[in-house]
Simulated assay, not measured.
Amino acid sequence: MIKRSRLFGNQTRVTFCLPRDAPAGTVSVVGSFNGWEPGRHELVARRDGTRTVTVRLPPGSHRFRYLATGGIWLDDESADRVDEQGSLLLL
């Protein structure tokens, strides 16, 4: 799931959210906004049974995927579009 909130100055706060245990292990959101660098935006377990990470993004299109332990790549069906290149956010 993806939550968005507009911020002052044309930025958008985007919260990426997955269930706590699916997939198992560490999960990072990697994408065009962080140089596809694993570990930079790692999802953190929350008391409500989810894992989340929040980033501030400028207007435009942003590609991303989730990378889980063991090299497992996942897309987010709640993105604006999902195709062979992964998930896409249009802000």
Rank of each mutant, 00 (worst) to 15 (best):
M1F: 12
M1T: 13
K3H: 13
S5I: 15
S5G: 02
R6C: 03
F8R: 10
N10T: 11
R13G: 05
R13V: 04
F16P: 03
C17F: 05
L18Q: 13
R20C: 01
R20Y: 11
D21L: 08
A22D: 15
P23M: 14
P23K: 09
A24N: 05
A24K: 08
A24E: 15
A24W: 08
G25V: 11
G25A: 12
V27L: 06
S28A: 00
S28M: 00
S32I: 10
F33N: 06
F33S: 11
N34M: 03
G35D: 14
G35E: 12
P38D: 08
G39T: 10
R40G: 02
E42I: 07
L43E: 06
L43T: 01
V44E: 11
V44L: 08
A45Y: 04
R46C: 11
R46P: 00
R46L: 10
R47N: 12
G49N: 12
G49Y: 13
G49S: 04
R51W: 09
T52L: 06
V53S: 00
V53R: 02
T54F: 00
V55H: 02
V55K: 05
L57M: 14
P58M: 09
G60P: 06
S61F: 09
S61Q: 15
H62D: 08
R63H: 09
Y66S: 03
L67M: 11
A68W: 11
A68N: 01
T69C: 01
G70D: 07
G70M: 03
G70W: 11
G71S: 10
I72C: 13
I72R: 13
D75W: 09
E77C: 02
S78H: 08
S78D: 15
D80P: 01
R81N: 02
R81K: 14
R81F: 01
V82L: 03
E84P: 00
E84V: 01
Q85F: 06
S87F: 00
L88G: 07
L89G: 04
L89Q: 03
L90G: 05
